Amino acid sequence: MPAWATDLRASVAYIPTLAEPPSQGPFIELVKAMDEVYSEGSISIGVYPFARSIQNVTSDVADFHLPMLRSPHYSDEGRPFRLMNKPMGQVCLVLYSHVDDRLTPQQLYRHKHAQPYPYRLSIMRGSAQFIDLPVEEVNRIEQGLRQTSLKRVHGFLGAQEEADQVLRELQLKSIHRSLFECYDDVIILPKGERGRRTEAILQQALETLEAQGRLRQLHRKVHQPYQDWQIYDPPFGSAN
Rank of each mutant, 00 (worst) to 15 (best):
Y183R: 02
P235A: 08
K173M: 12
Y117I: 14
G195I: 04
E40S: 15
A3G: 01
R197K: 06
V31H: 04
L18C: 05
W4L: 02
I141A: 02
E210S: 14
Q107Y: 11
L103K: 12
E40G: 10
L69D: 00
N240V: 15
I175S: 02
G155C: 08
S178I: 07
P118V: 12
V12F: 04
G195H: 04
R140W: 07
A3Q: 10
R79M: 15
D35H: 09
T6S: 07
M68D: 00
A3I: 06
P72K: 05
L121M: 09
E136D: 08
P134K: 06
S149T: 14
E142H: 04
N56E: 12
E29K: 14
T17G: 03
P49D: 11
P22C: 15
S178P: 02
D76Y: 11
Q217K: 15
S178T: 12
S75R: 10
G195A: 06
S23P: 07
Q147L: 10
S44V: 11
E20Y: 13
K86N: 05
L95K: 01
V135E: 00
P190T: 07
I141L: 03
S97P: 08
I141R: 00
W4M: 03
L172T: 10
A211L: 09
D228I: 03
W4H: 02
F50D: 03
H176G: 12
M1G: 14
A163G: 03
H113D: 15
D164F: 06
S23V: 14
K32E: 13
Y109P: 11
P16Y: 13
I187D: 01
H223D: 02
M84P: 01
S39W: 11
F27V: 11
Q129N: 10
E36C: 04
L69S: 01
Q204Y: 05
